[in-house]
Amino acid sequence: MTAPLLDIENLRVTFPTSTGPVDVVRGLSFALGRERLGIVGESGSGKSMTGRAILRLVRPPGRVTADRLHFDGIDLLAQSPRRMRLIRGARISMVMQDPKFSLNPVMTIGAQIAEAVLTHERVSRVDLHSRVVAMLEAVRIDDPDRVAALYPHEVSGGMGQRVMIAMMLIPQPDVLIADEPTSALDGSVQAQVLDIINEQITSKGMGLILISHDLNMVASYCERILVMYRGEVVEECRADALADARHPYTRGLLAAMPHIDETRDELPVLDRRAWTTP
């Protein structure tokens, strides 16, 4: 295996509270190559904070520490804010959760995508336009000229998320973090959006971190899976070996999943005493 794109050891995200500091991510370690890694966990397990910590976008008073937080040999924790901005977008990018809130309401879609390019490159107006149009086509938007002139409130959620993907991939980053990219979308368009992400990642040979609470979804789009619980990784396995997961939390989650060909009166509830030490 070549040197990993992301090399993280003992990542910690801490927030001060009235009862003292609380670690929302505690001692997370993993490496990411040009592969698809899924991070699953319930709400509050620290999976989104992990994504933001990699980009150093945890807002104060939150604090990020790590023994190692390297990207392509660059120590992310040692970078000045200015140098960090050169990495964000251009080399590591992130697709956010809900296009309703994560797209600027008073900028046209075309302007927002163009901004992602212009932040990192000097491009002529003609080239810029053709690149924006090509990128919109790549995320399967027909009539990209028209869509580029629209405002975010004028498009559907699914289209908004495709715009988001286009915006985050147009500077051709090496790593994409997708933070629950489909949880705000209808079931019918979820698969479409994930297929687009998948297609783009594999064709460009990028690294993907897919953050989700949907075990099945992550298992079908990723090669490796990290299961997080209360800020810690409790299980790391290959996606096709998920059925052999050993940790009681993962086993509990798997057992709680309904299957289409079975009849159950009651779905089991997680018994958290099984793995938390008193």
């Binding site: 933001r52 980009l55 901005r85 992130m94 809900d98 932040t119 988001m164 915006m167 985050m168």
Partner: peptide, 11 residues
């Protein structure tokens, strides 16, 4: 959230 988006872009 769209402010975070802008920061993610490196703006």
């Amino acid at each position: 959230e769209f402010i975070t988006t802008a920061r993610v872009k490196g703006v």
